[in-house]
Design a protein around this nucleic acid. Structure first.
Lengths: 198, 198
DNA sequence: CGGTCCTATTAAACTAGTTTAATGACAGCG
DNA sequence: CGCTGTCATTAAACTAGTTTAATAGGACCG
């Protein structure tokens, strides 16, 4: 995607969500590069320092943990108009705990972050953006935590289908199984039975 | 606990964690009441509006969800020097999704919250407090989410024992089972076997 | 066209949990 | 004292998942 268009999409988002002004936006927009990457591109590795996060203009990404045994567990999927990256690693100033990988070709705007960068330390509008992003992430993570704790596998699957019906097509089934916390074998076994009960 | 002592404990916490100044603190300290409650006291109900949150000076509380079938699932346990309440309900301006109940006699400082209250809207120091609290919650929830997703029941139990060894004594075993996402029967069955492997 | 890789399905044996129920330990209380 | 309620343990039957492995379809590639 065109750089100018991507930046414009991001500005629209910030303007609508956080009342970002055009003046404040253009002050720092130059510091943000637009990147276009293929599917299966690793945007962030677990164990690595986090120096930026992203605004996802177009495409689809997954966040996933890798256990010491090498098993991948999908933390979540995020599509266009989402903040993508580990804010908690930025907050705690520690290495990232999960991977971020594209599932489709993606267009992203990079937001460089450092605690004392002018943009984040001196601009109250950009501080607001960061704080509101943290708040949204908090809500997002709390919902996911509640799902994992309180719902059965079947309920989690049905909720997933309700919340993101289009993801069933866009995401390979074994990734969805990993998101639900079961094996692909189990999902294949029960999927149709579960769906027929809707 | 004495009101003055409780407020002082809270100020110490805010000062150390967020560089709260004594001037700014005393400006709003009068609006905060100190309450002492017994064990098994419900501080916040699911389905109710959230109008405040708490600083826990002393004691121990649990957060728990209740499923439509009436099953209780413990979201977490929090002890002294913690912010307690549903910040996500405040952020989203929606009803609380979980209950907050004391497990021991507790001393708490009430923090009334409304989006346009002077304390939160006009004081940058108190805004910082709220934002940092959201950040800590974000990190706390993300860790819990990761545990639920990536660890086996046995691993979750051992991690719980490592992280909060004293909670094994302070919290009834059936509450711990619910925190781990299993039945008390299963916990009793495997507990000693798991512990002996340490 | 045939080979290779990737994903989904199916089956069989197994394991980690559940549900229900009975039993015992202990605390508080009349 | 005995009664009652609460919590932990144990056992037995059951269920929802796992693991491993075999099979098949589709996409891509030389």
């Amino acid at each position: 995607m065109e750089e100018a268009l991507a930046q414009d999409r991001m500005y629209q988002y910030l303007h609508q969500q956080f009342d970002m002004t055009e003046a404040e936006w253009s002050k720092y927009a130059a510091g943000m590069s637009v990147i276009n990457v293929d599917a299966k591109f690793i945007l962030q590795e677990a164990g690595q320092r986090v120096t930026k996060f992203y605004f996802l203009v177009e495409g689809l990404v997954r966040f996933y943990y890798v256990t010491p045994e090498g098993k991948e567990l999908n933390k979540g999927f995020y599509a266009e108009n989402n903040i993508v990256g580990s804010l908690s690693a930025l907050i705690m100033n520690e290495d990232c705990r999960f991977y971020v990988e594209t599932l489709e070709p993606c267009c992203l705007v990079e937001l460089p972050y450092s605690r004392d960068a002018a943009m984040w330390a001196n601009s109250s509008e950009w501080q607001l953006v960061f704080n509101r992003c943290c708040q949204f992430m908090l809500v997002r993570n709390e919902r996911r935590e509640a799902e994992l704790l309180t719902l059965s596998t079947k309920q989690r699957f049905l909720q997933f289908v309700q919340n993101f019906p289009e993801y069933l097509e866009r995401i390979p089934q074994y990734h969805i199984a990993s998101y639900l916390g079961i094996t692909p074998v189990a999902l294949s076994k029960y999927k149709n039975q579960w769906l027929s009960e809707l």
